[in-house]
Structures are given as C-alpha cells and as structure tokens.
C-alpha cells in the first residue's frame, strides 16, 4: 500500500489534534506516514503518539538548523520525503502556515492542490464548503501527487497503533529557504478553554455585548465551550483577533454555535454557517442571524445568558 504523508503540526513536540484527524483520513487513502519536523529531543515522544493514532511510519526531521524559519524549509523537507516515498497523497493541516507550505510544495512537485477540505473520501475525492458556506464542492486533484489541506474536525482521531517505524530523515535545506524568519514570538496565553477551531461548542459575542464578555464566557464555561467574537467586538478591542469568527478570522464548524449580540453579517456567517446546530440570542427580532438558527431567543443577552448559565449549572448539579 502506498504511503500517505501527513505533515505533523505541533507546538514544541505537543501534537495538535488536527494532525491526529489527518492520520485517520490518511488510513482511507493508504498507509499513514507522519512527517515530524521538530526538536530531536521531542521526536521519540511525538513518534509514540503518532504511532498510537495509526502512523505506520514516522519520518523525524531535526529542525535545529531551520528553527524559526517559515514555510519554505518545511516545503523543501516534504519535497525531499516525497521524492523518496512516492506517496499517494500529502495531507497538511489547513492552518495559514499549512496552506502556504502546501502552495509552495504544489509548485515544487508540479502537483495539484486542494485547500480547506472538510472531508476526504477514498480515492481522494475532497469536499469543500465555499461562498460563505452556501455551496458544497467536491473535487479531485488530477495532476501529480495530490496535496490536500484539511480543516480541523474533518474526521475523528482514531486510536489504534500503526506499525510506527521511525526513520530519521536527513533533509538538506537551501539558503534561499531561509529568507523569512520569526524574530520575536509571544506565545498566546492559555485560556483554559478549548481551541476555537477544534471545539465542539463555540459561544460567541458581538457588539451587542457592549464590551462585557462576562455573560458570554460564563455560558461558554458551563458548556465546556470555546469563546468566539465578531469582528465588531474585535475591532472595538474587546477581544484579540484570534477570537474572531468569520471570513477574515477563524472558520468554525462545531456541533453547536451560540451567537450572542451578533447581527449575522455575511462575513460573520462565512465563519460559522456550517455549524451543526445554531442558536442565537439577540434583542432585535429582525437580526439576519435568526434566519440561520435552530433555536433563537429574542431578548437581552445580559439577562438571558446569566439566567441560562445558572439553570445549566443547576441541572449539572
């Protein structure tokens, strides 16, 4: 069975959940091979995790020489691993960096590229959601090694050990690939809540919060949810940009999305319209968000949310 390369997304060796989802998808297409580019001291633990989620092979690439350089070195690594492995497909997490790596790799390999897949079926047929989630498109790469970037939550991670053979891969990185470098980095403060793009439930607030997110956050915590925001809330400085849901923020597709004090502009919908269940609280019954909802409350979020949170806490006992 042909190998299917999966680029591992990790923070200092801690593997992020979308990578495990990619391993599950890779199994449908062939034999999963994870490509871990990171510190040599983190490789063994990472390989163990990757094996546990089905990796038959793990290429470990020591990043000492290229740490802090962006995108281009990783594209070169994947090009070199692909030259050796002749994979049936290459799967990359659909983050901003992942898509850029995929873009460069597509040109290097002369391969077609599909981005932001929400599903990949056997045979490499992808499903994408386009035009603010108003259309579903199925597509297939027709030239070269299919390169597919896959969005979070496209599959459930599957535990079950693969063969887990580890190969230390010696990549050669060109000087040209070292043209852009991270010169300073401020890790995001942990919120203790799930990642916005990975969460099963997202509770968001907009301009209607008036800048006070307490009620939104309390509801989120009672549901074990991530917190999101509209651009109006971000532009007002109430939440950092990383909380923004929408066309120019994060695109989320959780089981449940709760929009509070958000009118439902098309650019916001673009980021949440494919959520399974949508709930809104808005004091304006004409708000376009109500066109999308499974359940809506016309009311003031500052009274509805605290009461709902209290009721949820009571039921949880």
């Amino acid at each position: 069975m042909s190998e299917v390369l999966v680029l591992v997304d990790h923070v200092d060796g801690a593997i992020r959940k979308p990578t495990l989802e990619l391993l599950a998808i890779a199994k449908r297409l062939g034999s999963p091979s994870a490509v871990f580019i990171g510190g040599a001291d983190k490789a063994a633990a990472a390989a163990e995790t990757l094996k546990g989620y089905g990796a038959d092979k793990i290429y470990t690439v020591d990043d000492t020489e290229v740490k802090g350089y962006l995108v281009a070195p990783k594209a070169e690594v994947l090009q070199q691993v692909a030259a050796q492995a002749s994979p049936a497909a290459i799967l990359i997490p659909s983050s901003a960096e992942g898509k850029e790596i995929a873009g460069r790799l597509a040109i290097k390999l002369g391969s077609g590229l599909i981005t932001d897949a929400v599903d990949v079926a056997e045979g490499g047929v992808t499903t994408q959601s386009v035009f603010a989630g108003n259309f579903t498109v199925t597509a297939k790469v027709t030239q070269g090694t299919p390169i597919i970037t896959v969005k979070p939550n496209a599959a459930a991670p599957e535990e079950g050990a693969g063969a887990g053979a580890v190969e230390a891969f010696a990549a050669t990185i060109s000087d040209a690939a070292k043209g852009a470098q991270i010169v300073a980095s401020q890790p995001r403060q942990a919120t203790g809540r799930p990642e916005l793009t990975e969460a099963a439930i997202v509770v968001s607030g907009g301009r209607g919060t008036g800048g006070d997110f307490t009620a939104v956050e309390a509801l989120a915590d009672s549901l074990g949810a991530a917190v999101g925001a509209s651009r109006a809330a971000v532009d007002s400085g109430w939440k950092p940009h990383t909380f923004q849901v929408g066309q120019t923020g994060k695109v989320v597709s959780p089981q449940l999305y709760v929009a509070n004090g958000i009118s439902g502009a098309i650019q916001h919908r673009a980021g949440m319209q494919t959520s399974k269940t949508i709930v809104a609280v808005n004091k304006d019954e004409e708000a376009p968000m109500f066109e999308l909802v499974d359940f809506g409350v016309v009311g003031d979020l500052h009274t509805v949310l605290p009461a709902a949170t209290a009721e949820i806490e009571k039921r949880k006992g």
Partner: peptide, 13 residues
C-alpha cells in the same frame, strides 16, 4: 428554527 421572545426569564428556560 424556533424563535421565542424572552419574557420574565422564559427565554433562558
């Protein structure tokens, strides 16, 4: 979907 008007806490319930 179903849309309800909040009156005296009925919305939250």
């Amino acid at each position: 979907g179903e849309i309800v008007k909040d009156e005296d806490g009925s919305g939250a319930t």
